[in-house]
């Protein structure tokens, strides 16, 4: 029984917004099956059951700074790096159907 099927990879690619073609899906499904088979060995660590998870190496909480207004990057400088800009904003492709 494979850890992951081609159909599952296609579903994950849609979730991750990756328009993968058929040959990429074939290759990835095989490779991910091998990789997942290897990483699945962490299930062997039985003494982890009652251990708290570590999400971060440095135990810092609620790092705050004074709520003061400071200058941000100039708008034109930021938009200069955008694929498309218009009227001082990022221009994006349509987000609604024509019928909507």
């Amino acid at each position: 029984m494979p850890e992951i099927t081609r159909e599952e990879v296609a579903h994950l690619a849609r979730l991750a917004r990756l328009a993968l073609d058929d040959s990429e899906l074939d290759v990835l499904a095989g490779q991910l099956d091998v990789i997942l088979g290897a990483v699945a060995q962490i299930a062997e660590v039985t003494d982890a059951a009652d251990v708290p998870p570590t999400s971060h190496a440095v135990p810092l909480v609620n790092v705050t700074r004074p709520d003061a207004v400071v200058p941000s990057l100039p708008r034109e400088k930021v938009l200069a790096g955008a694929p498309a800009a218009e009227d001082g904003r990022f221009r994006v492709p349509r987000i609604l159907d024509d019928s909507a």
């Binding site: 994950l12 993968l20 073609d21 290759v27 990835l28 490779q31 991910l32 997942l36």
Partner: peptide
Amino acid sequence: AQGFGAEVKRRIILGTY
């Protein structure tokens, strides 16, 4: 799909899973 290479796609799919 066009901008990322094979290893990056592999890891994004693995992480999403």
